[in-house]
Write a protein that binds this DNA or RNA. Sequence first.
DNA 1: ACCTGAACACCGTTCAAGT
DNA 2: ACCTGAACACCGTTCAAGT
Lengths: 212, 212
Amino acid sequence: MSPRAGTGHPAGKSRERKPLTTRWSRDDWTAKALELLMAEGVSAVKITRLCADLGVTKGSFYWHFADLDELMEAIATRWCAITKEALQAMAGLDRLPPVERLYRMTERLLEDRTLAVERALRDWARADERVADAVTESDRYVFGVVQQALLELGFSAGQARMRAGTLVYAGIGYAHGQRSLPKPTKNEVSLLLDMIANTAAERLDQQPQGHL
Amino acid sequence: MSPRAGTGHPAGKSRERKPLTTRWSRDDWTAKALELLMAEGVSAVKITRLCADLGVTKGSFYWHFADLDELMEAIATRWCAITKEALQAMAGLDRLPPVERLYRMTERLLEDRTLAVERALRDWARADERVADAVTESDRYVFGVVQQALLELGFSAGQARMRAGTLVYAGIGYAHGQRSLPKPTKNEVSLLLDMIANTAAERLDQQPQGHL
DNA sequence: ACCTGAACACCGTTCAAGT
DNA sequence: ACCTGAACACCGTTCAAGT
């Protein structure tokens, strides 16, 4: 018994140019897979399940992808592109004060759908070189944006690197830790960013003010 | 063709009280599995592989464990106990200055074998409630130790929580991020702990000094 | 160019039967 | 009490054959 009912063809005796017409591009497969990943988590990303949802057979999958790893890589690439875009939009509204930028990035990370993909990608990255590369590139980009904000705040190169690393790693850690620890309140996020973005007061030239 | 050569019985026409004598306890299974996990990573922990290494059939596994999840739980529990013990030994040599404690804990986390298990456990935790519980308990313990050190350093409750959370999450993040970002040098670890353990200078009553 | 359908391998799981 | 051996289900992968 199929668990979710057939999603394949629109059903009905559709006379629209043959039922065989529904064909899916490589991008369609990738998009659908990412959708599944975000909605139901990594365990839903099975090629069997994908085929059921798309209404085709498994053989079809292998015309578009060499194997599962290649699908994961495609998902990773697509996701990292989306992330980069989103961040560029944030940093693009660029004349936000640096601290504001950090706030927005942090908030984005804390969204549930983001967390789900983050986790899956890093899991896969351990098994597949190419996924790892995509994730690495994305991480470097994020790191760069954070670092830049800190440099603008007047930190030395070394301090900026360390602080950016701390914030980014803490974000990754949060994505993987989940309910382990009491989840950060808005107020704690404020405290965190204060610590990251403040030094001994004398080093600041722009003071961050009452956030959120 | 068996990939690794039979590890089962010592071979030879051993007349030592029947070849059937080698029996493994539940703890043996768990220990061997943890060993495999640390040595070859999560992909090596297959019941097929375990049986080959132990020289028994798969049916045997199911006498000791209900299923794979139960094995994972056993591994998790065992690992968390080991971690707790190790930390108690550290915090037990208790009159180390708090900052020193944080250093030692950080160093332990950065060991490769530790990282491998950390990663696997959190992966599994997402799929299995009981693994999640074990990890959560362990995380809370670690968090508590860090928080305590920070309280001793004179931080307010709120600050101690936030700083402990940051350090612990950053550690988890590092475990999952891997080569994504430039790996922290000893010097950067110093900078990090300085940031975590220092406030505006006036708040300190014991000054941390040249570490390592 | 894109898909079906049947086959296969691998691995987790069950269970009746052995000692 | 502990293990074998054979069966089964599920899923990834291959490939000859269809349109």
